[in-house]
Design a protein around this nucleic acid. Structure first.
Length: 426
DNA sequence: TCTGGGGTCCTAGGACCC
DNA sequence: TCTGGGGTCCTAGGACCC
């Protein structure tokens, strides 16, 4: 049986989630901002038509938004994550193997569906998702994941396809690939684009026609895979089971600038708290954490970028251990006289706590730590993230310069009882 | 005043070993 | 003038993704 994949994703996903809960947003230009209300990361068609580019900094488009009546939201990840889960629950009914590729994209294994029924399958799928969740989608179908992604791009930009593009047949690929620009190929970024251009490639059809060995020479194995995949020969499998993650990071820009060690330590302590939550949520631990902070490349003052790695005697995911390490690391690399714009914590080489090497001396009381962390997580789950934090995070100063901005966030309609929609008068 | 955050994979090159 | 030949492992950095 020849392999077949479908890629389904939400149209202007974050904006569409906002629209589900506020019909007044329909047919209006809407954008959703990145963390810290920095840049536009999701735009409806109406907003794109006004010339708002992906990643446009808010301070540069503020006037335009005001003038044109663009509705602006901060990111509401609790809402988008929950909508994403609902959409995937729908996909589960349509395919036995699915790969959740990102918050708004999933691959479905379409191999069992007969080729002549695949397009119809795509239409059924997006109609059901729209009816059950309210989110509009597009579906791309092809014999490889790269072609399914490509088909999805075509479906997005070609209204007469009504949201579904099927590149199963050779004829369909001969028709469409010459119309797809290099930048729309999955895995081809700016650098590869320039190299392909030098080879005379202008479209996906040109890339498919390249000699795979030549592609490997200039673009490594990644390039060779792309050529094969564009020709319909699968090199990238569906990953139905999510692989264990390899690293974990918590990094944030500050709403203002941080100029004191005390405030920097509060910021990294807050990041350490979040890192602990993430590690425990994934059932993982680490025996080191890298602390970094730097000034902004956009500021005119003196610039500085530093990092340090703090090792633990044994792997841990205890918030208190992480907070201590973060503060210690921050002090070690601290230097005054700079206006720091961003700080973060990163770890790699995550391990399952049970498998990790135990330290012989100075070992933590694991059972005690586990119970305390479980209680902490349960409490924050019930009362909202940040309800209980280590004292080092500095509750009294939480409104300070390092805090991240979310000034225009919509209610968390689906995950907070006190924020659900209320119909009629109270 | 204000420019996101969090991942993965690949390669080159150095350190080290026999 | 001559100055081995591989292996492996680790790290930093590039490229790309959403």
């Amino acid at each position: 049986m020849t392999a077949s994949f479908a890629l389904i994703d939400g149209n202007s996903f974050y904006c569409s989630c906002e629209r589900v809960f506020d019909p007044k947003l329909r047919h209006r230009p809407v954008i959703v901002l990145s963390n810290n209300d920095g840049c536009a990361v999701s735009r409806t068609g109406e907003a794109k038509a006004l010339g708002i580019k992906m990643g446009a900094p808010m301070f540069k488009i503020r006037d335009l938004c005001k003038r044109e009546g663009v509705i602006v939201f901060s990111s509401n990840y609790a809402l988008y994550g929950d909508m994403s889960r609902r959409m995937n629950a729908v996909y589960e009914r349509f395919a036995s193997d699915i790969e959740i590729y990102s918050i708004d994209e999933s691959f479905l294994d379409l191999t069992p569906v007969a080729p002549e029924h695949r397009e119809e399958f795509g239409h059924d799928l997006r109609t059901t998702v729209s009816t059950w969740t309210g989110v509009p989608t597009c579906v791309g179908i092809g014999p490889t994941k790269t072609l399914a992604k490509l088909a999805n791009k075509i479906a997005k930009s070609t209204p007469q396809l009504r949201g579904v593009c099927d590149l199963t047949s050779d004829e369909a690929r001969r028709e469409w690939l010459p119309l797809v620009a290099l930048e729309d190929i999955w895995g081809v970024g700016r650098a590869s684009q320039a190299k392909l251009w030098a080879f005379g490639c202008k479209t996906a059809a040109d890339v498919a026609a390249l000699d795979p060995r030549q592609a490997r020479q200039t673009l490594t194995v990644v390039g060779e895979r792309i050529v094969h995949e564009l020709r319909g020969r699968p090199c990238i499998d569906l990953e139905a089971v999510t692989p264990t993650r390899k690293g974990c990071a918590v990094t944030r820009s500050f709403a203002g600038r941080v100029e004191s060690l005390e405030m920097m330590q509060e910021a990294v302590a807050a990041h350490a708290t979040r890192l602990g939550e993430k590690l425990r949520h994934h059932g993982l631990a680490t025996d080191h954490v890298t602390v970094f902070f730097h000034t902004s490349p956009f500021d005119s003052g003196p610039s500085r970028s530093v990092s340090t790695t703090v090792d633990f005697p044994e792997a841990s995911n205890d918030t208190l251990v992480l907070v201590r390490a973060a503060k210690w690391g921050a002090r070690r690399i601290w230097k005054s006289g700079y206006r720091y714009a961003k700080a973060g914590l990163m770890t790699v080489d995550l391990v399952a706590p049970a498998l990790s090497q135990r330290a012989l001396i100075g070992a933590l009381d694991r059972e005690k730590s586990g119970r305390l962390m479980a209680a902490l997580d349960a409490c924050n789950q019930k009362h909202g993230r940040g309800a209980v934090v280590p004292a080092a995070v500095g509750i009294a100063r939480q409104q300070n310069a390092w805090i991240t901005k979310f000034d225009m966030r919509s209610p968390r309609y689906t995950t907070r009882l006190n924020e659900v929609l209320v119909v009629g008068n109270a």
